[in-house]
Design a protein around this nucleic acid. Sequence first.
DNA 1: ATGAAAGCGCTAACAG
DNA 2: CTGTTAGCGCTTTCAT
Lengths: 337, 337
Amino acid sequence: MPASIDDVAAAAQVSTATVSRAIRGLPRVSPATRARILAVAEDLGYVASPSASTLATGRTRTIGVLAPFADRWYFGRSIEGVERELREHSYNLLLFSLGGYARNREGLFNHNLVRKQIDALVVLCLSLSADELAHLHRTEIPLVAVGGPVAGCSSVRIDDGMAAEAATQHLLDLGHRDIGHLHGGSEDEMNFTVPRLRTDGFEAALRKSGVQPRPEWDVEGDYTVLNGVRAAARLFDGPSPMPTAVFCASDEMALGLMFEAHRRGLRVPEDLSIVGIDDHEFSEAAGLTTIRQDPTEHGAMAAQMLMAELAGMPGAIRDRVVPHRLIVRSTTAAPRR
Amino acid sequence: MPASIDDVAAAAQVSTATVSRAIRGLPRVSPATRARILAVAEDLGYVASPSASTLATGRTRTIGVLAPFADRWYFGRSIEGVERELREHSYNLLLFSLGGYARNREGLFNHNLVRKQIDALVVLCLSLSADELAHLHRTEIPLVAVGGPVAGCSSVRIDDGMAAEAATQHLLDLGHRDIGHLHGGSEDEMNFTVPRLRTDGFEAALRKSGVQPRPEWDVEGDYTVLNGVRAAARLFDGPSPMPTAVFCASDEMALGLMFEAHRRGLRVPEDLSIVGIDDHEFSEAAGLTTIRQDPTEHGAMAAQMLMAELAGMPGAIRDRVVPHRLIVRSTTAAPRR
DNA sequence: ATGAAAGCGCTAACAG
DNA sequence: CTGTTAGCGCTTTCAT
């Protein structure tokens, strides 16, 4: 049995109230008694029981992270960012991953959030229904989204439309006019709007340059490498002539495309230019030109805002659109013809 | 304010004790009252307060996962596996990531584990000190390691030595005799033994075939892609002739090597065969020959054993060495000469 | 089958 | 500066 606050109080010959104050560094404890209590606590190996203090205070000192997956680049990185920030504040992180299945979402909000299991929530790349939002609001759980805009709550993210536009513009600037598009599905991503935003950015860039998007060079993927290679195969096997460049809505798909191009003996960038978005951990190694975003920072910023809000600064939570940046590496060049 | 058990009791005109039994599905409640209570609870939106039940029972219904990182393939996948299993049992997952820094480890065991914050722990790819082990034992927290053997506790893992040996043997079988070795550091990995085991396996395979390992083809990395490309550069820039094949202790390093080889105009497998270990999510797309292991399953198995143990089956936790398997894709072939 | 009551271990007034 | 005293919301004997 671990030592309880009563054990410490007894050993230090004070009341539990004083122990509580001393341990938590509250005022109204003389330096002498505080020192004695701390010493006693130390050698009894006393640590306050979280459930008891939670019950008494209503604060759990843990924040939840809700993600569609835990095992993909963006999510892993942002989780790490959140964790890093929480560590500073001695908060814990409760992870809810949907494992890719939307149905795992049912009941999550009622069961885990109604009753204070967490003090705040960060939602990764997921939209929230009006119901879910209402639930959170009712329980007064501060909330911030990460990875894309979410109607009804603040979020930290890049401007996905501008990012896609910048990537496409880079291709245009190089002189490309025949540009393919490998993008995400519209519905698969759990109602998330990011695929749509990136597609819009791509189309906007073309439009501004007076270039017509070509439906036969438009291929749908799901943001993963494997899908990138499959989509690439569809592109390469199509009846029409090949584009001279492809804009991929994610680096993972871009990398898949690179693998497939390489397998078919196409040279990148001589025969085909490729640009992605993300700056995935593999992109530098592969030399992929891309638009960089830093999910670790996104996660950390979200956690920071939440910590501030919980610390009593109202208005700490706000929308944050962080800058993205084009990183030109070796998969893009001027078209040959 | 969310409804409490008293609200339900009042509304259903029974005592809180009965509500408690009814909600938890315990016997000694008549079908009629149970139905009434459930109905009332339902429309009051009642959910038991976790901290209150934890305080009363000593069980938290959450298990901890301790990892050196949250944002790398093996860890993300095993976390997902654990999560999947926990979801079945309505357990929560508290994530402790060290963010790559061993010092973040200090105090973790005292602060978070002494006082029941979690009912059990899974440790990913980390060795435990005698002190830490003693701590866990004293608090009676069931424990299982994942990803490698750990002295003093059960683990689920592949046989890393045999896996490395199989990968190397594949190269040998193809006729290679000049084999390079890209391996992990001995100390960096937070005292973890896996790098050592894989190195031993590599050397054992060579020895059995009477081949001498060549120090100039031995390069140290840290299991990441980026390090794979750096190590590759060192290998390619070295003064000595090139090996005809390289065994990489992780797919990430193998992929880095592939990227660098490609960049230098070397053809794989014609000029250089490459084999890795893991079957990383990128390996299929890249066509990398490798030894497959499935961290999602590892995590799920660990969680399963823990759930069983907590459910009262003693001896549910035991060592599990799961089979690995060679997957020949397109980065290995017979040497040309 | 149901209820009364004593905790679980801590915090938060309120007194002194 | 320190102690007393109610809770926080649930579970769990022990009665009935």
